[in-house]
Amino acid sequence: MRSWAVALWIGLWAGALAAPVELKVNLRVGEAPLEWGRVYQTPMGQRYRIDLLKFYISELALVRPDGKEVRVEGLALAEFRRGGPTQGVSVMRFEAPPGEYRGLRFDVGVPRELNHLDAATQELPLGVNSGMYWAWNPGYIFYRLEGTAFLGGKEEKWVVHMGTDAFRIPVRLHDLQMRRVRLEVPPRGTSLVLNLDVGRAFLPGPNGAFLDWQQPRLRQLHGMSPETAMVMAVVYYHMLSAFSLAR
């Protein structure tokens, strides 16, 4: 009888300590849900279609009202392909203590200590079978966005492969100061839903530089290459604010 009570007590405590949380993502272009196959237009007037998006989420943490963090181990690879869902897509599951939070933070990328291990020895979501390993540039592509540009009567493929340690994207969706963000994790668990505006990659930068697919060299945007670094920096700058919490 006594052991029964102890087990029940432990069970109740465990439930209180860990509620299931699912992180979901909505893909947006501006305010509207992304539609595969639809032709969009950049602010600079170039027409494009999105064909593929994959990115890593790591270093996730929920932020308590006192500023302390509940850190989540591990990383996830979010994948969006033509024909697949774009709204409410589950990208990560974890457990967190029930309670009130002032938001969350995570990185789009792979932590340095994992990014430079031998990819041939790593398993999914890392490793060579992930489709994110960067063979000529040891490490992983953190954010892989690919599509088609419509230039006059011509279709041109373009890629944005953001990676290398310098281009890990810190996403900070918490607010302790103004208290505008409030997340509740009830004991039964919850879903946290993020919006990702993929169209922000195509906004011009403060310096006027933008992803101009008329220039063939900008159709292949890779890592830190000085040939394209200015535009990659612009994309990175806009990616910092591409995620938001869905209301």
């Binding site: 031998d118 990819a119 041939a120 060579v128 079978n129 992930s130 489709g131 390993y133 063979a135 000529w136 540039n137 040891p138 493929k157 890629v159 292949q220």
Partner: peptide, 29 residues
Amino acid sequence: LFWEGRSPRLELQAVGPLTAHHEMGMEPE
């Protein structure tokens, strides 16, 4: 390996041309 010499072994180098857009262009799946 590669012209920059930044791939440390053949097992990893081969992934490059197999998946590169302007080489063999294959996705792992």
